[in-house]
Design a protein around this nucleic acid. Structure first.
Lengths: 327, 327
DNA sequence: GTGAAAGCGCTAACAA
DNA sequence: TTGTTAGCGCTTTCAC
């Protein structure tokens, strides 16, 4: 491995001068800089990021904590995060927590002892331990789509209220009035609750009173989508529409419908309050949701800002951009 | 941050002794060990992985190079890789290459200068530059589902021939004889070519001669699946079946079918030569493919072996386990 | 069984 | 503008 010592020897200069050139310090004679760069080219030098990290106290790596790497929700945001960070020379360490707070805490400790430049948690905020672990950290943290009331941290979140609202509105515009909302357990997931709130707001605005029977609770997974669909679509009246809190429940509902010979927009309407996986974009159904890739980019950008300007007060940054698709 | 220096002071011992305890060296008096561990507990010491990496020349991190983080093919394998590596205290750095060889090379350099413990490339092996970059590396590398003839590296690959064979067989067993294969450009993707080979073998074995018109070439994406379906299913004879090289083409074909009122298993048969995304497992269609999560685990295990036993000759390790689903 | 000292490759004071 | 020196926190000889 080529080190600055080798460069120093090859160029007849000292290690410090070489270091200055490498780090683009302005206080170097152009001629000297050239001499060093020659050696760099000739020997194929590449700085040891680890050694540098020891001194500067920072490794150009960012920990991103997801709940499930196989879920498009996370990978779409991840794509945005990675693109942005890579442009600035950072690498992304992905931790698939399986939504387990204990493992999240472990990963955060790991990040600390590796002196990561920052952490972007996208999940796991039920646990006090996670919060307090992060607080003891003294490391830039951007909460992405976590609860908004963790005032100690920078946080960015999508407009899931707007998503629920827009999805419902789109159905209303098509003339549906009997619109069911397939929701999650709203006390558990903040995002899920926001979407539900958006649905309720749109219904209210349209002057439609929503009684308890219109909001059906599932577990945000496919099976419960099918189960709930069975309850609403049994008597297949064409004026019924489903506003699904998330994609997986929609998929379950669509499966149910298909198996029972129900055709979308003929026998029932369908909208989702989030972006579907890429290969389901521009399909038949309506969707409205925060642009996941973009919100990932924004979170990464925010993190970079924090890295470059430490000591600023943490702030909430709403991310209003919605992807609304109404075919 | 608590360092071994602090532990030494707290326990009245030297840094070296503390280091021995931390690293489970046998040459320490039990009593001394206890004294150190007390200090560790009391002060909440956590070793600085970076500093350790400088000495040992290895950071417990592994670079995994994927083609597209939003593709379930990669994330499923990634899930297996991560689980296995995490158990051994390694972290996973995911690099989404967008299949770009130049960016892959950059990421490999990054891994080197960070002294990563290993690299698992899952894509990007068209380029000679990638290969030679890896060869200059002196770092454990496990090629996962890349070309098999890179003899300089350890490599593991799934039984994609078997997948194509099994998928086709399942259709044959159901009585289909007019089975189209939606393939990729087989010169580009080795995996795609293997699946095609499996299809051809099964057809041959069944005594069905396959002329050129039965293998249709697309680009492995959704649109081409729909386009090819239009060619085969137009005259909707119920004895036609599609054997899709990958999930996305299958999805395109299913969309086409649905929009034209064709019902699976009534109007046409469908099989895929790979595992679909989790939420499409146990659906209507047949699939057969290497168990992606398991192959990920196996690759990670192989990497760990190489890290612990350097200097062994690189070898191919076929991974025969198939997930065959025939509802 | 334990301690002292060297050094990994680099940056960041401080001198010159 | 450049060189010298002192570490970062740890592991690893080599003495004792």
């Amino acid at each position: 491995m080529i080190t600055i010592k080798d460069l120093a020897a090859a160029s007849g200069l000292s290690k410090s001068t070489v270091s200055r050139v490498i780090n683009h310090s302005p206080n170097v004679k152009p001629e000297t800089r050239e001499r060093v760069m020659e050696a760099v080219e000739k020997l194929g030098y590449q700085p040891d990021i680890l050694a540098r990290g020891m001194i500067t106290g920072m490794l150009p790596m960012v920990l991103v904590i997801v709940g499930d790497i196989q879920n498009h929700y996370f990978t779409q945001a991840l794509a945005g995060i990675e693109t942005t960070l890579e442009e600035q020379g950072f690498m992304v360490v992905v931790f698939d927590s399986s939504y387990d707070p204990e493992r999240i805490v472990t990963s955060i400790h790991m990040a600390k002892t590796c002196r990561f430049a920052g952490i972007i948690p996208m999940t796991g905020f039920g646990s006090k331990r996670v919060i307090s672990t992060l607080q003891d950290l003294d490391c830039p943290v951007i909460l992405l789509n976590c609860h908004r009331d963790h005032v100690a941290f920078d946080r960015i979140y999508g407009d899931d209220f707007g998503a629920g609202y827009a999805a419902t509105r789109a159905l209303l515009r098509r003339g549906y009035r009997q619109i069911y909302h397939f929701s999650g357990n709203s006390t558990e997931s903040f995002i899920s609750a926001e979407r539900e709130r958006g649905y309720l707001a749109a219904m209210k605005e349209a002057g439609i009173s929503v009684d308890g029977s219109m909001v059906l609770r599932g577990d945000l997974r496919q099976d419960s989508g099918a189960r709930l669909a069975a309850r609403c679509l049994k008597s297949a009246k064409s004026q019924v529409a489903l506003c699904c809190n998330n994609f997986l429940m929609c998929l379950g509902a669509m499966n149910y419908a298909q198996q029972h010979g129900l055709v979308m927009w003929k026998d029932y309407g369908m909208a989702i309050c989030e972006q579907p996986p890429v290969f389901f974009m521009k399909s038949e159904f309506i969707y409205a949701g925060p642009k996941l890739r973009e919100i990932g980019r924004a979170a990464a950008q925010l993190l970079l800002d924090r890295i470059n300007h430490p000591g600023r007060k943490p702030a909430v940054q709403p991310f209003p951009m919605l992807d609304i698709y109404d075919p």
